[in-house]
């Protein structure tokens, strides 16, 4: 199954990933060959086989509703590219 350039551009947009113009042909080829590889799965009839999500079929554990974390805002925001008054700064969203 050959992908088109526009398929790659669409997926890149969905992933919010800017890809270089020059890289698009290579990615289109790569993704086509990866999808050819994974499409080998379609030859197998998996009819009523239950999908496996956790190798030991464990389910999500519940815990008591207790406060376990303390506020470490300043500590965590040391890694932030831009903050002000304890808030993360982003470009203006609403005009």
């Amino acid at each position: 199954m050959a992908l088109e350039r526009s398929d790659v551009e669409k997926v890149a947009h969905l992933a919010r990933l800017q890809i270089e113009e020059n890289d698009i042909p290579e990615y289109t080829r790569n993704l086509t060959s990866i999808l050819d590889l994974v499409n080998q799965m379609q030859e197998v009839d998996t009819g009523d086989i239950e999908p496996l999500a956790h190798p030991l079929d464990a389910t999500q554990r519940l815990r008591h509703d207790e406060v376990t974390e303390s506020n470490q805002r300043e500590h965590f925001q040391q890694n932030a590219p831009a903050t002000e008054a304890g808030l993360f700064l982003v470009p203006k969203v609403i005009e």
Binding site: V38, T46, I49, E50, P51, L52, A53
Partner: peptide, 11 residues
């Protein structure tokens, strides 16, 4: 989903 079903076959 398909891959998860195959995953069970492999296991």
């Amino acid at each position: 989903r398909k891959a998860q079903r195959i995953r069970r076959l492999i296991q």
